[in-house]
Design a protein around this nucleic acid. Structure first.
Lengths: 246, 246
DNA sequence: GTAGAAGTTGACGCAACGTCAATGTCAAAC
DNA sequence: GTTTGACATTGACGTTGCGTCAACTTCTAC
């Protein structure tokens, strides 16, 4: 018993294009090819095709399916691996859904959808979790309120000040200045004032923030774009500043 | 204030390649291009980039983002549409996970992973409960025995007949034929004969089976993969057929 | 002056086919 | 014997969002 390409395509619920594709990639060859170039598939090919489609519906990739069918890989093992992937994927989407919901609430609350930058040139809402965890919800809310109270102009200016400070740290680092040098400590004071606009700065807060500048790449790059190692200079300078002044 | 491509890439947490891509597709043009071909981006471009990346992290496609940023589309509306998509996607993956789990259990139970299809293109042991409940244990045992008595060849042939019948129903539905049309009734007769091979077909049995085709998604999809609404056509056709012939 | 970092423009690759385009075959109808 | 229409073939591009060379030019710092 032998069928034409359309026949098996229809009976297996797929398309002739798909069969040709499987032929091309060596996943399912026709059992016979006529002198006219027509492909014909027999019983065995049909069975194989059905197994392929079954696995594909489970979401396996064609290369993975090929391995399983070639017996190079245990079906159960492949499925378990795949299951992990699927669960990760679901996790990701679940998180995305949560994010979209949050964003929707924001925009519907009349907020402009803009990357609001505070603290260090980033949308501070992005750091909500970290901030709340380290310094409590009050600290976050206070900073958030303060930020919201600024005009767009003020926001921009504030953000620009941070950029300038970062650039100055970069130049100091480039010049090889020490964290306890007067120049660096002067820049650090400006940083202190800048942060003080948004939050009450305590000693552990300031020191912790400095450590975060090094530990969290989102902050690190903010300084290190002015030269690798700048963030570390800033952290050390902040620690010294805190010891001396806070 | 102006930055090079690497500068904004780093500060926004993306790559220069991405920025060039956005330039190519017209999503974000550099604010200035030097005579040497270098791209430079200003404050406004940075803000725009940040909004783009924000939306992208929520999973929106670049064209959708372009519409939103162009003001052609309301952000909230776009997000709501997107939310629906995400939820569908999560549904799909959840179903896939369930399927993979089922398949895993089967293969670990030592069963051969093959599409054993009977009754309606499915592994009939999967429907044991329903069959026993509706038509009694005898009916199930009889069908099961009959099925077991077939050679693999015969099983295949029987299964193939069902697939052909389903495909024909699909084409009839696509053609807009009525359930009481001669063509559809002829297909239904073939279905009757096909079922008759396994079980004694009575009027309520036939009608009930038709209803199950619509009520149980495992059956429904078997027909509806040939076009949404096919299962309903089959049910109606079976009812009419039963009234006239059983 | 020269090295090395950073910039540029192509162009391919990925996953799994969908979708033309241009053309050849086959069975049935005229 | 020919025409027609359905079905077949082999390319080859399009899809999504960049990653990743490759080959070359430009800037920056010593």
């Amino acid at each position: 018993m032998e069928w034409s390409i359309q026949d098996i395509a229809r009976s297996a619920g797929t398309t002739s294009r798909t069969l040709r594709h499987y032929g091309e990639i060596g996943l399912l060859a026709p059992s016979r090819v006529g002198s006219n170039g027509y492909r014909y598939y027999d019983q065995d090919a049909l069975v194989r095709l059905q197994r392929i489609l079954l696995l594909r519906e489970l979401g396996l990739g064609l290369p993975a399916i090929a391995e399983v069918l070639a017996g190079q890989r245990d079906t159960a093992a492949a499925l378990r691996t795949h299951l992990d992937l699927l669960e990760q994927e679901r996790q990701r989407i679940t998180r995305q859904i949560a994010s979209v919901r949050t964003t929707l609430e924001k925009t519907e609350g009349g907020q402009q959808l803009m990357a609001e930058e505070v603290f260090d040139g980033f949308d501070h809402t992005q750091f909500k979790d970290e901030v709340v965890e380290r310094w409590g919800k009050d600290a976050y809310d206070k900073g958030d309120q303060w930020w919201g109270s600024l005009s767009d102009e003020d926001k921009r200016a504030h953000q620009q000040r941070q950029l300038d400070i970062a650039a100055d740290f970069g130049r100091a680092h480039q010049a090889g200045l020490a964290p306890d040098s007067d120049v660096v400590q002067a820049i650090t004071q400006r940083l202190h004032e800048w942060i003080g606009a948004a939050a009450t700065v305590t000693k552990p807060y300031f020191v912790g923030l400095g450590e975060m500048y090094v530990a969290d790449p989102r902050f690190t790059q903010n300084y290190d774009r002015h030269g690798a190692g700048t963030a570390e200079l800033v952290r050390d300078a902040m620690k010294i500043y805190a010891e001396r002044n806070l």
